[in-house]
């Protein structure tokens, strides 16, 4: 079977147009643009300087219900913390369908320490470690469940600050 010159040229042309149009599509779809990796980090909530501003920025409201639905412990031993660099926190709750949990320290320069987006697969308690400034502070846990915010507060005193 013979292939004439015109046929080869035709194939070549099809290849070129195909790759050119594919490339144009990829560029147009934004696939080659550098992805904004940090787009979902709530910068406003993390740079807020009061507990109220954090809650407004992170959860859209600051009206919270105090109660015994949330339970958490701070430090080992509790309440009096020697080293603020690494303070263990254990969060537990009887609430069902928790969507988000925020962990705050009111006297830290930026109160918000972390925000956890929780799915129903996650079972509490959850343990972690945080930094707390020297002196007296309130450690605050706020959870959102069914459009309602629940809060729990613990008073702590730290001997050596954690430089958060």
């Amino acid at each position: 079977m013979s292939v004439d010159l015109a046929d080869i040229e035709r194939r070549d042309l099809i290849k070129k147009t195909l790759s050119a149009s594919t490339l144009a599509m990829v560029v147009a779809s934004g696939l080659v643009l550098p992805r904004r990796v940090l787009a979902h980090w709530p910068a406003e909530a993390f740079s807020a300087e009061t507990v109220e501003d954090v809650l407004l920025a992170l959860l859209g409201q600051a009206d919270v219900e105090q109660g015994h639905m949330l339970n958490f412990s701070v430090g080992k031993p509790a309440k009096h913390i020697i080293d603020g660099q690494s303070v263990s926190i254990e969060i537990d709750s009887e609430l069902e369908d928790i969507e988000r949990v925020a962990l705050l320290v009111d006297n830290n320069p930026n109160p918000l320490v972390m925000s956890l987006d929780v799915t129903p697969t996650i079972l509490l308690p959850l343990k972690t470690r945080i930094k707390i400034v020297e002196g007296k502070s309130k450690v605050i846990v706020v959870a959102r469940s069914g459009g309602q915010l629940y809060k729990a507060v613990r008073d702590v005193r730290v001997d050596t600050g954690g430089y958060p």
Binding site: L112, M114, K127, T128, K131, I132, G162, P164
Partner: peptide
């Protein structure tokens, strides 16, 4: 199943335990 957003007040060498 879980997404955690952290600020600079999370301890050095972050530790988490959950189920």
């Amino acid at each position: 199943v879980l997404a955690i957003k952290c600020g600079g007040a999370t301890s050095e060498n972050p530790y988490f335990s959950f189920r």
